[in-house]
């Protein structure tokens, strides 16, 4: 199993969540975060903004769903033809065990 952590633009949140739902990933955890990327933030009128609001979406998946979910997120979270700085990132970490509390058992 894998844990996908995707950082996306706040205005893309609903769109990404809807397309994840449609692609068979209804479950997700969503956190408001702030961050900056390689561009060190945005400089506007002499002010440097380096705490840019983003949305962190966490989804637990089976290994074989990896390509599919990455595809879905890339397709919906990108802005413009070739993407733009600030569209976000996807991190993938191995997940050893998952427990669903209401079911009281192991597994997604």
């Amino acid at each position: 199993m894998l844990l996908i952590r995707a950082i996306v633009r706040p205005e893309k949140k609903d769109e990404v969540l809807a397309s994840l739902s449609k692609a068979g990933f209804p479950a997700a955890t969503v956190v408001d975060v702030v961050g900056r990327g390689k561009q060190k933030g945005i400089k506007m009128g002499g002010m440097l903004y380096d705490e840019i609001p983003k949305i962190l979406i966490m989804v637990a998946i089976h290994d074989e769903e990896r390509e599919n979910i990455i595809d879905v997120i890339l397709k919906t979270a990108r802005t413009g033809e070739d993407g733009t700085f600030g569209d976000g990132k996807i991190f993938i970490t191995p997940l050893e065990e998952v427990y669903t509390i209401s079911r009281g058992g192991r597994g997604l």
Binding site: L3, A27, A60, T93, P94, L95, E96, E97, V98, Y99, T100, I101, S102, G104
Partner: peptide, 24 residues
């Protein structure tokens, strides 16, 4: 720890009690 969290969070609703992830 998993046992403790599960015991504290289980409700009679059967859905929405949450999930526990364990990663290295």
């Amino acid at each position: 720890i998993i046992e403790a969290i599960t015991r504290a969070n289980k409700t009679e609703h059967n859905v929405g009690d949450g999930t526990i992830f364990v990663m290295p």
